[in-house]
């Protein structure tokens, strides 16, 4: 059974027409830790990928692909990394549905363009950062 209904799929397909280049969803799944959630997360990633030829999906197990997980800084499952021409630092822990689903689609688009919708002043300030910044955003689907 599909996670996304026909209307959502149509809307997302339209939104994903904005993709400026290839993007990759790197899915972290670990059956023994959170089997059901990981399977749903993986299924969601594959459904989204069906809506654009620009999207590919790779599934990793952090218990097996330890070096990759460490390199991405992923220490939870289910998790998703959204990558464009490079890893921009876009991570999702948990299944991004509801409000988070629109964030996922937005993340795919901005990862493909590499052009954030931020003011010049904000971008200048961020590019001048002298230390790493880790932003956690706690959210819920509704």
């Amino acid at each position: 059974m599909s996670i996304l209904n026909a209307q959502v799929r149509a809307d997302v397909r339209t939104e994903l027409a904005k993709l400026a280049g290839p993007v990759r969803l790197v899915v972290f799944s670990q059956e023994l830790v959170a089997g059901d959630l990981c399977r749903q997360n993986e299924a969601l990633a594959r459904e989204v990928a069906e809506l654009s030829e620009q999207i590919t999906v790779e599934v990793l197990n952090p218990a097996i692909d330890r070096e990759r997980a460490a390199a991405y800084g992923v220490d939870q499952v289910p998790a998703l990394v959204v990558e464009g021409a490079r890893d921009w630092g876009l991570r999702f822990y948990g299944i991004p549905l509801g409000y988070e689903f629109s964030n996922l689609i937005d993340a795919l688009v901005v990862a493909s363009t590499g052009e954030p919708a931020l003011s010049e002043a904000t971008q200048t300030a961020l590019q001048a950062l002298a230390a790493d910044v880790e932003i956690k955003v706690f959210s819920t689907p509704t």
């Binding site: 876009l90 230390a131 932003i135």
Partner: peptide, 8 residues
């Protein structure tokens, strides 16, 4: 420098 994680 910036990494963001959306957490359900």
């Amino acid at each position: 420098r910036v990494r963001s994680t959306v957490i359900e």
